[in-house]
Amino acid sequence: MSFTLATWNINSVRLREELVLKLLREEAPDVLCLQECKSPVDKIPTEGFAALGYEHMVANGQKGYNGVAILSKMPLEDMGREDFAGLGHARHVAAKLPNGVIIHNHYVPAGGDVPDREVNEKFGQKLDYLSDMARDFRNAAPKRAILVGDLNIAPREDDVWDHKKMTKIVSHTPIEIEALYDVMTAGDWLDVTRADIPEGLLYSWWSYRAKDWDTADKGRRLDHIWATSDIAASAHGSRVLRPARGWEKPSDHAPVFATFDI
């Protein structure tokens, strides 16, 4: 079985329904994982998605904030959702594909502006969320699994536009990177995107604050696709759909793709 998966922080699925439909029509991934849907599950506009063949959805919704969803052409088995760090946020959902592969879709807290949990509660919540993820994966020892989402951390030096300038900026601080790699080690996860694209600057997010995001190109790779080591070698074709960042009224994130032959 071969399938293509995409992950995208859509920054409101209702506001940007037309962008989701454009992606589904033009790129036609078999599975699309969305983050920051900002919608209760019953308000997600599924009719248009179903008309394009995406008849299956597993979601974890929240009015106005957070929210994650998995859309699929293939049947999905709901595998639940976890409330990491006990925040009461809709940040995780999991689903099983017909081939038995489980997809975990995460929206990790952004962490605010100050990388110090003593003065910034949001940064502490982010670290606690990552710690709970690592604990969960150590206990569960996942196999035949894929993890995707906006993890809100750009771990490598070439995942940001300027490593030296970014080391004290939330999303690229050493403590966050260490926490993310702890999650990766705990679940025996491998970074599919960087296995396919091992060298060079690579971004999936560009700030709305930039007047010309494309020319300035001050990006970060915050969106990830991982797989457990038992299936990671089956992944190929990784790419970031950078042009989507320039669509009309875009999300500040671009979709990330990978194909799996499992």
Rank of each mutant, 00 (worst) to 15 (best):
K73T: 05
W205I: 01
E248Q: 15
K211W: 05
V31M: 04
D212P: 04
A235N: 04
F123G: 01
I197S: 01
S238A: 15
R25F: 02
V192E: 03
I197N: 13
G219I: 04
N139D: 14
S234Y: 11
L241G: 05
A179H: 03
S171L: 07
D132Q: 06
L202C: 04
D113P: 01
A28M: 07
E77Y: 05
A258G: 10
R239H: 10
H224I: 08
W213D: 01
W161D: 10
M1K: 14
K73G: 06
W226L: 14
K165M: 12
F84L: 06
A154E: 00
N105I: 07
K165G: 14
S12N: 15
N66S: 14
E36L: 10
Q35S: 14
I102Y: 00
I225W: 09
E26F: 00
P40K: 03
T7R: 04
S2Q: 11
F260D: 03
A233Y: 08
L147D: 00
T228G: 11
F49M: 12
G61H: 10
E82Y: 08
K249N: 15
Q35F: 11
A179E: 06
D159V: 06
P155T: 12
S207L: 08
T4A: 12
L127W: 00
T167C: 07
Y65E: 05
H163N: 12
Y181M: 06
T185G: 01
D230T: 08
A232V: 12
H172R: 02
D136C: 13
R242K: 15
M79R: 15
D217M: 10
M1Y: 08
G100P: 00
L180A: 05
H56A: 06
N105G: 09
K96H: 03
G64P: 02
H224S: 09
E18R: 15
D182P: 00
G48E: 06
S39K: 06
A85D: 07
L19I: 12
S171D: 03
N152L: 03
M184R: 12
T167R: 15
N66E: 02
D78F: 12
T193Y: 07
H89N: 10
S39T: 11
L130S: 01
R117D: 01
V183A: 04
G111E: 00
R135S: 14
V93H: 08
E178G: 04
K122H: 09
L127M: 09
A186I: 02
